[in-house]
């Protein structure tokens, strides 16, 4: 009796999971379905799960529409996401290493000053940051879009925690061999801690690619639009082409889904290791 109940429970759990998984996948399905359908199929009064014909020409049409500068926006997003990722990882890992390993009397003060900014959400800083960036004349420039976002206390914190757990004996041996802090970091620590670099790098990349508020505020000229800003602007256009919008949205998340699926292991490790819960 009891066993039968457990077995029934287990089966029910799998059924619920499959139902939830389908529900979670519906938005992705809609993205592809609408992106490859004709406008007529999308707006037809009777719902069809599969459009009459797949219209692959949507993919080229989206790059030819002057009101939706997709090519330029993809280029901007790529430049911004790559430079943000590289910059954040370099700056935060150096700072994390210094905080974890170089004895300094006021290291604690510096650490808490950095950690304190985690408590200051974007809701508070975006108006003042906009003020600063606009007085520097950085509106609609790559540096205005990238530089203010490079200093992630969160990334610094993860690196510091990770380096604290790195076996100290390895570094001590390096020091005895006469390596200074820089060469110990570069030759011993970095090559042996690649997973944390991958984890932080992927998380930062996804965040930079998907960022919306900052690019919206800073990237005001059409030439400075990121993919997200371009899509958002197109959404509110007067005569909206649904198939074009959806194929553009699908194109915008395609690189990310690939990166995500390939590097998921590192992202999961990074999320788990963020150490916020211990």
């Amino acid at each position: 009796m009891h066993d039968a109940l457990t077995r029934a429970g287990r089966a029910l759990r799998v059924v619920v999971l499959i139902a939830l998984a389908l529900l979670f996948l519906i938005p992705f399905y809609l993205l592809v379905r609408n992106g490859l359908a004709t406008e007529r199929d999308i707006t037809a009064p009777d719902w069809r799960f599969f459009p009459h014909a797949l219209q692959w020409s949507n993919l080229t049409e989206v790059f030819d529409d002057p009101s939706l500068p997709m090519g330029r926006a993809l280029l901007n997003s790529t430049l911004i996401a790559v430079s943000t990722t590289v910059g954040t990882v370099v700056l935060a890992s150096l700072a994390g290493y210094g905080l974890a390993r170089i004895p300094y009397r006021h290291a604690n003060v510096v650490f808490y000053a950095i950690l304190g900014t985690l408590m200051v959400p974007a809701a508070v800083t975006f108006v003042p940051s906009f003020v600063l960036v606009s007085s520097l004349g950085w509106i609609s420039t790559l540096r205005g879009l990238v530089i203010p976002t490079l200093f992630s206390a969160f990334a610094c914190f993860i690196f510091r925690q990770y380096f604290l757990g790195f076996p100290k004996e390895l570094e001590d041996a390096a020091r005895v061999d006469g390596l200074g802090y820089w060469r110990t970091y570069w030759r011993i620590v970095v090559p042996n801690t690649r997973p944390v670099f991958a984890a932080v790098g992927t998380i930062v990349f996804i965040g930079a690619w998907n960022a919306f508020l900052w690019p919206l505020v800073i990237g005001q000229d059409q030439e400075a639009w990121t993919v997200q800003v371009a899509l958002s602007t197109f959404t509110t256009a007067q005569n909206l082409n649904l198939h074009e919008l959806f194929v553009a949205a699908a194109v915008s998340i395609a690189p990310l889904v690939v990166v995500f699926l390939l590097l998921q292991r590192y992202i999961v490790a990074g999320v788990e290791r963020s150490g916020i819960d211990d």
């Binding site: 939830l20 998984a21 979670f24 996948l25 519906i26 938005p27 992705f28 809609l30 993205l31 609408n34 996804i206 690619w209 998907n210 919306f212 997200q228 899509l231 958002s232 959404t235 909206l240 649904l242 919008l245 959806f246 949205a249 915008s252 998340i253 990310l256 889904v257 990166v259 995500f260 699926l261 998921q264 992202i267 999961v268």
Partner: peptide, 23 residues
């Protein structure tokens, strides 16, 4: 795990497009 985690890769802009104009 992948299926439930995958939406994290989606931006709010894209999700809003799907929710507002399709679902």
């Amino acid at each position: 795990r992948s299926v439930f985690f995958l939406p994290t890769a989606c931006s709010y802009v894209v999700a809003a497009v799907i929710w507002k104009l399709s679902i």
